[in-house]
Nucleic acid binder design. Sequence first.
DNA 1: AGGCTACATGTAGCCTGTCTATATATCGAA
DNA 2: TTCGATATATAGACAGGCTACATGTAGCCT
Lengths: 113, 113
Amino acid sequence: MNPDALRGHMDALLLSVLEREPLHGYAIIEALQERSAGALNVPTGTVYPALRRLERTGYLVSAWDTVGGRRRRTYRLTDAGRRQLEGERSAWQAFTSAIGSVLRPEAKPSGSA
Amino acid sequence: MNPDALRGHMDALLLSVLEREPLHGYAIIEALQERSAGALNVPTGTVYPALRRLERTGYLVSAWDTVGGRRRRTYRLTDAGRRQLEGERSAWQAFTSAIGSVLRPEAKPSGSA
DNA sequence: AGGCTACATGTAGCCTGTCTATATATCGAA
DNA sequence: TTCGATATATAGACAGGCTACATGTAGCCT
């Protein structure tokens, strides 16, 4: 997957994966892989800064906890984050629809000139 | 439309719009708008450099001509460009499928824990 | 004549999000 | 004691789309 393709869609991905339950960064990366059947392999250097950015913006809040001696920072959606997720979903629809309508190979109308 | 969203998809768009017939830059911008029902408003500062890049790569070739006293640089697909377009199309399918499967709000299985 | 809009191309430089590479630390298994 | 998995974090590179600007023709309106 061309890395540039993700540009501008990471936020939607992260928000979406946190919709059902709070998760920590590492688990988010795994969830992304699972849900996409392996197609989305997002490096930590992308996810961790993105999560912090989303927290700074107010879409997420985080809290530290320790499980089995390991420290985790668990993120959960805020109300603003849920609203944002809805916006991201419709933006995604509009986006794929627009690109799709250009990319779709138009069958030439039968009466060719 | 979030400008970042286009990142990595411009090439596919340009190649696709040139599939049927050669066009010059200005006409390509109009074609993009028409085909996307106004959703894709790509500035000249994006299109012209991208076209040159695609020509440098070998997916397009250009030729100058003059119509009504105005100079135009008309681009057409090379064979490599057509092959690339096919690749872009399947990459687009894979991309939307991957993102879509993450974004799609999963209906919780009826028997909630 | 002057001004405006549409047509037409082009570039410099900014912006910013993703990636690579690296660092740190715990735990369990070999 | 070394290794892989788990877990977080940051610096700096990279690159492509965008803003803003520069240039010029044609045709219309007043």
